[in-house]
């Protein structure tokens, strides 16, 4: 599509700059979206270090593949999180022999659980330990990344209704769990 005829979002403009080797644009994108990328990676990997690795890899790939991005006049965060998803899935495949992903992290000895407790990340801890994997992803994508439910549905390849139901169920769980703490 001809760029001159497309209204570019600020992030799309940054990606075009990144494609031309603009490191400042990359830095801006990184600082702006690292939380969203990290949170999504964390919801898939349940491991802080691996989530950090995937976060870094995501932005390295953004740097290397920015030229392949086709502007559509929409926020490119879904596209960026798509990279994150693919990298996280690849990491899960390569680590499949040594890493298991339980549905719920109720074990207090879990390193992630312990870390979050120390850091006093109560809500995040509740999300990662009490919600199902899909619920975690949906909640984090919506709350942290700011994606709309339809975008989440596209990204996770789920029906929109499923995303909505899971999101509402997750919120109810969190409110119930955190009601007394907050």
């Amino acid at each position: 599509m001809d760029e001159a005829m497309t209204h570019l979002t600020p992030d799309e403009e940054r990606i075009l700059k990144i494609a031309n080797g603009d490191r400042d644009a990359l830095s801006t994108m990184y600082l702006q979206h690292k939380g969203a990328v990290f949170g999504f990676a964390l919801s898939m990997l349940h491991d802080r270090e691996r989530a950090e690795d995937v976060m870094q890899e995501t932005f390295i790939q953004l740097w290397n593949s920015a030229a392949s991005y086709i502007p559509r006049g929409k926020e490119p965060l879904s596209w960026l999180l798509g990279i994150t998803k693919n990298l996280a899935l690849r990491r899960l495949r390569t680590d499949s022999l040594s890493v298991s992903i339980p549905e719920e992290h109720s074990d207090p000895a879990d390193p992630l659980d312990h870390y979050l407790a120390v850091e006093n990340k109560l809500i995040l801890r509740a999300v990662l330990t009490k919600l199902s994997e899909e619920e975690q992803q949906i909640v984090l994508l919506h709350a942290v990344s700011g994606l709309k439910h339809r975008e989440i549905a596209d990204l996770l390849e789920m029906p929109l209704s499923t995303v909505l139901n899971k999101y509402r169920r997750a919120l109810q769980k969190l409110k119930k769990l955190l009601g007394e703490s907050i």
Binding site: F38, L124, V127, A143, V144, L174
Partner: peptide
């Protein structure tokens, strides 16, 4: 809740720029 969750994740996300 979403705002609080976003802040917690942002704090946890490292800056390795």
């Amino acid at each position: 809740l979403n705002k609080r969750l976003r802040e917690e994740v942002e704090q946890l996300a490292p800056n390795r720029l």
